[in-house]
Design a protein around this nucleic acid. Structure first.
Lengths: 97, 97
DNA sequence: TGGCTCCATCGTAATTTTACGATGAAGGGC
DNA sequence: GCCCTTCATCGTAAAATTACGATGGAGCCA
């Protein structure tokens, strides 16, 4: 996959976001976070048949893609959708093609 | 990944499209097809460092996701972006979250 | 301090994705 | 008929993804 050269930085970022949300579990987490803003990892784990380690890994992918951000609150972490980046994503999807 | 149950059919379709375009090579192909409408597979292969079999495989993924469609023209196949489904995709991205 | 909760990370197995060469089907021109 | 082009598919190797249990760091409260 040497085609990275062929994509603009914006397109690479867009592809990364799409890849992150292209996983059903992660798309579900995104929706869950919009319906339950500022919930903690444990809440997501509980709402899921997956192990804590797996959910944590998915959250990392979403974080790396800039789709969510977490704020430390005591021993827990409040996650929420990164609205700014999501708006950017929506704009890019709209204007592409 | 048992979360398929947790997604609506629309969301599953959306995830499939995102996954398809989440690959840099395939996102590049999508852009190439918008800039070169109705070009054939060989054109894409030529514009790419990839083997013909690899490009054909990527095209299949995009086809299965409903993002492109091909029309037979003699021994060749003209590919183009599926505008209807792309508009649907853009609408879903806009309304989600 | 001790114990508890919350979470990320490590190590690892199973599965999927990505890429390739080889093969063959289908259409067109001679 | 024969060849040439175009393309999908098969088989397969390498790499990435997905999932899990185990471990340990960090914060909080008694």
């Amino acid at each position: 996959m040497k085609n990275n050269d062929r994509l603009t930085p914006d397109e690479e970022r867009l592809a990364k976001m799409m890849k992150a949300m292209g996983n059903p579990t992660r798309l579900w987490i995104m929706r869950y976070l919009t319906e339950h803003p500022m919930c903690i990892t444990a809440d997501i784990v509980e709402a899921t048949p997956l192990a804590q380690a797996t959910v944590s890994q998915h959250l990392k992918v979403l974080r790396d893609a800039g789709l969510i951000c977490g704020t430390v609150e005591g021993p827990a972490i409040n996650y929420c959708v990164d609205d700014d980046n999501l708006v950017w994503f929506q704009g890019k999807v709209q204007e592409l093609f």
